[in-house]
Design a protein around this nucleic acid. Sequence first.
DNA 1: GTGAAAGCGCTAACAA
DNA 2: TTGTTAGCGCTTTCAC
Lengths: 372, 372
Amino acid sequence: MPGVRVDSWVLMPSSVEVAGVTWQAFAILCHTGSMPRARSRDGARRRATITDVAAAAGVAASTVSRAFTRPDRVNHRTREHVLAVAAELGYAPNPAARALESGRTNTLALLVPDITNPYFSGVIKGAERAAAAAGLTLVLGDTQENPATEEQLIRRLGPAVDGFVLSASRLPDDELRRAAELNPIALVNRATPGLACVVADFDTGTRQIVDHLASLGHESLVFLGGPPESWSGARRWAGLRVAAEARGLAATRFGPYTPTLGGGPAAADAVLAAGATAVVAHNDMLAIGVMLRLAERGVAVPDDVSVVGFDNIVGSDFCSPTLTTLAERTEDAGARAVEAVAAQVLSRVDDPPTRVLPTQLVVRRSTGVRGG
Amino acid sequence: MPGVRVDSWVLMPSSVEVAGVTWQAFAILCHTGSMPRARSRDGARRRATITDVAAAAGVAASTVSRAFTRPDRVNHRTREHVLAVAAELGYAPNPAARALESGRTNTLALLVPDITNPYFSGVIKGAERAAAAAGLTLVLGDTQENPATEEQLIRRLGPAVDGFVLSASRLPDDELRRAAELNPIALVNRATPGLACVVADFDTGTRQIVDHLASLGHESLVFLGGPPESWSGARRWAGLRVAAEARGLAATRFGPYTPTLGGGPAAADAVLAAGATAVVAHNDMLAIGVMLRLAERGVAVPDDVSVVGFDNIVGSDFCSPTLTTLAERTEDAGARAVEAVAAQVLSRVDDPPTRVLPTQLVVRRSTGVRGG
DNA sequence: GTGAAAGCGCTAACAA
DNA sequence: TTGTTAGCGCTTTCAC
């Protein structure tokens, strides 16, 4: 009934079958005043649909749709009215229905190996912010450091999202490329040719670490490696090696160790046995674990041993001694990755770029003059 | 064309309009052998739909649907065949389409005030796990400690999810109830009559804290308050007060302070000015901030002042001295809340329960004998 | 500038 | 057991 206007509201009951339950639905015809929202028989409110709004506003559903999505193609007054009615009914467009039509869900998925790892908090936060700014919803997935879980999530979430941000992905290159054929993908701290990547500038960062240690008189360093599959870990070690050679320092890799506090004792003991004066740990948690063990064994940091970490996590600023560490711009990384995916969603990008983000050496109390 | 079977595959081109772009779609009729997936003209793969699978398998779309959702209502052989074809085409059901039909999205939203706050990591992790176990997708939202953002997120995500888990919600009770009429809601660490809640047992927890301090000879304590709107904060102070009175200790509240490291200096200085021997901080971050300031001012913890926190965050185990704190079962809380929402999604729950989770006092090095 | 109608991918009622 | 059909809420031609 197009153009219907009523001064008071009218309830038009009709039963609707949803999910096997019969709902008592009401078309509410109204154009002014406050009113109860549609209610199903059991008392739960039924969400207003575009049809409800159209009926209540006395226009066609297509006009309501345009009022929301093509403001310029609707009479100004009509639009105002429609929006007012919609607000009154508490109407919000159903994303699922939109997605069905357009094929776009306005949703991005972010997959991280471990949500509780403070390192990923920054990536999540940055991604969340960028997604919100772009009007996109972010779905978060925890792969539990497991490639199989990661693959399963990608498959399951695939049809529901417009693209993926994969942080520290454990998937082989060819699997990533296959997934990228169905959904745009951006990688964080993982480089795969042909895919959009956001990586930290480990080359410069590790050089800074080596320079710092060299300037304190250290002539050698030990790298305490993390998980062998870690792309970042490989880059860190590679960078340290090159930089150390350039500065004439001896660099040795120990490990792999668990990149957690728990990995500390084994690593620290190995460091002591080797008589190293400077150690660079795979990440901050391992570095802190190492320092705890060194303290336990009566070794002074930094006087006897200097310790450097990676990540600048919360806690590296209040552990004892405070930790010298290489900070990455994790929030930036998350945000850039989201932007990269969003760009690919809007239009096919032929040669997705690799973005390198600067790192920053944060010097605190865990590093000092050799034999100081 | 029902029942069509072909021995080799046949491509039936037809153009499809999606998102304003004309796609070259192919119906693939086949029942054996490997085949290329549907491709649009620009080379990007088109996701296979139920129709593609039906055509390729030589059955009706509804049969494909049943093969996935009602295994028992399909001939075993047919189902096998359909699933094989589906796998070959890389078919996965489109959740948006399912949602449109059923009204259920199989998605839950979890809203937290600050994703990077380690306290919420546990809640997130637990919720994520429980959701995955229930076959639900979890959407994560960051309200930025802002009631307006929280409300907006609820409104925007509402139609896209089956329910909400609200952690440390800042919304007033009546707004929560209004939102609960449209979507099932479970609250974490926030009690609102009529809604499902999961809260920590602060009464017992604070009693444990007071008992611990009393047993060390302390005769009074200072509570360093956090944000005034914090429900947990109010509960913590209320519990401490009651327990202190019961044990004959004097309890005073200072603050409010920012519940971060940055809130430490002001709080610590106030503590020193008051000559307190035992302080209980709103949370661990504040407690650690206080300890940093005390160290800076040459005050010994725990010999001069004992310090207790709340949350048992990562870092409370490696700050200096390590922190005595009341641990909550945050992962459990997240999981229980998800279960509570899921239960309400499946069937209306008339009187949603409040679940109280036990807390645990973790005694470390920051508390000691008074004047020790 | 607006309405009618078709259709997105899927499920569920009804037929066969 | 399986196919046909209608319709979920929305957007988008295509008329008017």
